[in-house]
Design a protein around this nucleic acid. Structure first.
Ligand SMILES: [Mn+2]
Ligand SMILES: [Mn+2]
Ligand SMILES: [Zn+2]
Ligand SMILES: [Zn+2]
Lengths: 148, 148
DNA sequence: TTGTTAATGAAAATGATTTTCATTTCCATT
DNA sequence: AATGGAAATGAAAATCATTTTCATTAACAA
């Protein structure tokens, strides 16, 4: 692979090689704010990189999740969707899902109260049930502007 | 089908027939507090009702979800899981998922604060983004007592 | 430049769920 | 109680997402 890239050192630290499919997939994900599926990634890259197989897309996504660079989400039915994890700690967000058109909308309103609640709940779960909370997922369902 | 049942009238209202598979599946779900998959339901019923096919289990579960009698949940990987919806309004609960052993635990601590937050978030989403919020899902991930 | 080993791609396998279609069952109406 | 027609069912096949297998290719340390 040619030019270095800002993520290259993280791959090395992870004892993983820096390859064309990995660079290209990570690049695509970092450039979009959407939640995209493996097949959509495969299709997006097909014109420019017809050599990259769907299997490699899946394997790369799995690696990127393990490396903590992206998030994998399974919204009910349909394929898993992936989104790039922002470097900035404060860009944490939750989702609203339109049950009619399938639109997925990020939101971060009330994030302060939500994070406080999350913290409180984590403490209670830890104390009362002896759970070690590592992550959470909060989502709302309903009808988006266009669909009601 | 023999004896009437407390759900029979709801099926009639839904223009659906009261059949053996439907009664038996609803009965099983109402008796367990677990989150069970279609295949688990199929296997549970097999001894007593070997005639009930997996296809019918799926179709019945779909109907029961549409009727609002049960909830369907897709926790990341694996099959969808179903749980009976309690009649009592105040038995609403959220989930904690152990990422190591897969255990799913219901909890309802902090439900007051959570419900208040949910209400506030719903209002904001409605006002600011014009969404009609109909439902929500809150879950925590981590390690259960046995797995840490 | 080269050797080792990880990464890749195509095809096959897997697992969950859905569709198809011929047969059976429910149940409103005789 | 009998019956006709629509709804429900079960078995098998189809579909869809994802994983595994295995032979080939490419990355990169030496
Ligand atoms: Mn998002
Ligand atoms: Mn539950
Ligand atoms: Zn919509
Ligand atoms: Zn556990």
């Amino acid at each position: 692979m040619h030019g270095p890239h800002k993520w290259r050192h993280r791959f090395r630290a992870h004892v993983s090689r820096w390859t064309v499919p990995r660079e290209v997939i990570l690049d695509l994900l970092s450039r979009t704010s959407k939640h995209i599926s493996a097949k959509e990634i495969y299709a997006s890259l097909y014109r420019m990189y017809p050599g990259i197989g769907l299997t490699t897309v899946y394997r790369t996504l799995d690696l990127l999740v393990r490396m903590g660079l992206i998030n994998k989400r399974t919204f009910g039915d349909g394929p898993s969707r992936y989104e790039f994890k922002s470097e900035k700690k404060n860009e944490h967000h939750h989702h609203f899902l339109c049950t009619k058109c399938g639109r997925i909308i990020d939101y971060s309103d009330f994030i302060d109260e939500e994070l406080e609640l999350v913290k409180k709940t984590e403490e209670t779960l830890a104390k009362k049930h002896n759970f070690k909370v590592l992550d959470h997922n909060i989502e709302f369902y309903g009808l988006c502007e266009k669909c009601q």
